Simulated scan of single mutants.
Amino acid sequence: MLNRRSALMLFSGALATPKTALAATPKEITWDDLLPVGVPYSEIIGEGELDEVNDTWNPIYDENATKLNESLDGSYIKMPGFIIPFDIGVKGVTEFMLVPYTGACIHMPPPPANQLVMVNAKTPWPSDDLWNPVWVIGMMRMQLQTTDLGQTGYAIVADQMEVYEW
C-alpha cells in the first residue's frame, strides 16, 4: 500500500517524464510503402529514352508516377534515405529532398514523384554529414510539389533525425 509520501513521489516523477517518452511510436516504412497499393514499381517507369550524346537514360513516367499511398497521409513515420539539400545554413540543413539512393536527382534523372519526399527539419542536420543515410521521423503528408530537381509526392515535417546504421 502506498503512503502519501510515496504517492507524491510517483506523481512528481510522472510529471518530469520527457514528452518524447509519451509521444507516439513512429511507423517504420520503406520506399516501397510510398507506392500506391496494387501498383508495383515496375509499372511506374516506362521504357524511357536513351540520350547517347550525354550518355544518360531519361525515364518516361506514366500517371502511376504521381499516384501516392493515401494511407500514409497524416501518419507519424520513420523512414531512411539520403539528403539532397535545398537550404544550408550555418547550423546545417533544414530543407531537403529525401531520396532512396545516393546521387538520386543529381547525377541522373530523378526518381518518380512517389519516390521523393520534401523534408523540413525542425532541428538542422549538420552540413558536414550529408553523404550518409539518415532516419527521418515525423508527420507525413501527401503533397505533390515541383522543385528544380524533380517533382516530390510527399512532405514530412521532421521532429527528429538520426544516422541510419546498417
Rank of each mutant, 00 (worst) to 15 (best):
M1V: 00
L2K: 00
N3G: 06
S12M: 10
S12D: 02
A23S: 15
A24D: 14
P26D: 11
K27L: 14
I29N: 02
W31P: 09
D33C: 02
P36N: 07
P36W: 02
G38A: 04
V39F: 02
P40K: 05
S42F: 10
E43R: 13
G46W: 06
D51Q: 07
D51F: 03
E52L: 08
T56N: 15
T56M: 14
N58R: 15
P59G: 03
Y61V: 09
A65D: 14
A65I: 05
T66D: 12
G74E: 02
G74Q: 01
G74C: 01
I77Q: 08
I77T: 04
F82E: 05
P85F: 10
F86D: 15
D87S: 12
V90P: 04
K91S: 06
V93L: 01
V99Y: 00
A104H: 00
I106C: 12
P109H: 12
P112C: 07
P112H: 01
N114A: 00
Q115L: 06
V117S: 04
P124W: 11
S127I: 02
D128Y: 09
L130S: 12
N132L: 11
P133Q: 09
V134H: 14
V134T: 11
V134W: 13
M139A: 08
M139H: 10
Q143R: 13
T146L: 08
D148Q: 14
L149W: 11
Q151I: 07
A155Q: 15
A155T: 14
I156Y: 05
V157C: 10
D159L: 08
Y164S: 02
